[in-house]
């Protein structure tokens, strides 16, 4: 029963979801004035998210309290995490999410931290590109040449070396062709495969063939 009930529920809700997404009479059906099934489903999703947030909070607190209690390595950071986590939540609860203090903390701390992390991508791209572009075989040589052309097509020095007014549209013309013809063709081929793979994965779950979400490895 422990396994059968969730499987039946998955199938029933899949059928309901497909019906309410694809069949107009079901999409438009109101079980009460102004209330469609989707409005009710949205409400239950919000409810689940709030409950889930609480679970996340409990997990995070439990894990870091354990770290502090057992004095594991870097336990001081766990103390700091709990202060920030609950401190920010308390400020929001007391003064509200529209208060100047709450917004200031967000603007002055979270936004710069976010931007810092995002800007680190530039350095990571450089180190990953160095490893990928080292000439080892034919494929990596093609990758290097194509990447070089695309980079030159994107920067002004490429325009200075080979103008877009010249034969083939210069580096910019070749870059545009690479991105719009072979690159798009491959991306679309991948997208079709992904769509079909996702579809087959969904069917496996709905038909009860894939039961990993119930736990277990078989």
């Amino acid at each position: 029963m422990k396994r059968e009930v969730p499987m039946v529920l998955a199938l029933v809700f899949a059928i309901i979801r497909i019906g309410f997404e694809l069949l107009q009479p079901m999409i438009a059906w109101e079980f009460a004035p102004g209330k469609t099934v989707f409005t009710r489903l949205s409400f239950s999703l919000t409810f689940m998210s709030v409950m889930g947030l609480l679970m996340g909070l409990i997990n995070l607190s439990r894990q870091h309290i354990n770290t502090i209690r057992r004095k594991r390595e870097h336990w001081v950071y766990s103390v700091w995490l709990l202060i920030v986590l609950y401190g920010y939540a308390i400020i929001g609860l007391i003064w509200g999410p529209d208060s100047n203090t709450f917004i200031w903390i967000y603007d002055a701390l979270i936004v710069p931290l976010d931007s810092t992390m995002f800007s680190m991508l530039a350095f990571f791209i450089a180190s990953a590109a160095y490893r990928a572009f080292r000439i080892r075989n034919v494929e990596s040589t093609i990758l290097l040449v194509v990447a070089f052309i695309v980079m030159l097509g994107n920067v002004s020095i490429g325009e200075m070396i080979w103008s877009s007014e010249a034969w083939l549209g210069g580096f910019k013309g070749i870059k545009d062709w690479i991105l719009s013809v072979p690159n798009t063709a491959h991306a679309r081929a991948l997208s079709i495969g992904i769509f079909l793979g996702a579809y087959a994965a969904a069917i496996r779950v709905f038909l009860g063939l894939d039961k990993k979400y119930l736990g277990g490895t078989d």
Binding site: L190, A198, A201
Partner: peptide
């Protein structure tokens, strides 16, 4: 890449 991700998940069973 792409559909290999889903196919791999299926073959793992």
């Amino acid at each position: 890449i792409g559909e290999e991700f889903y196919a791999g998940a299926a073959t793992l069973s």
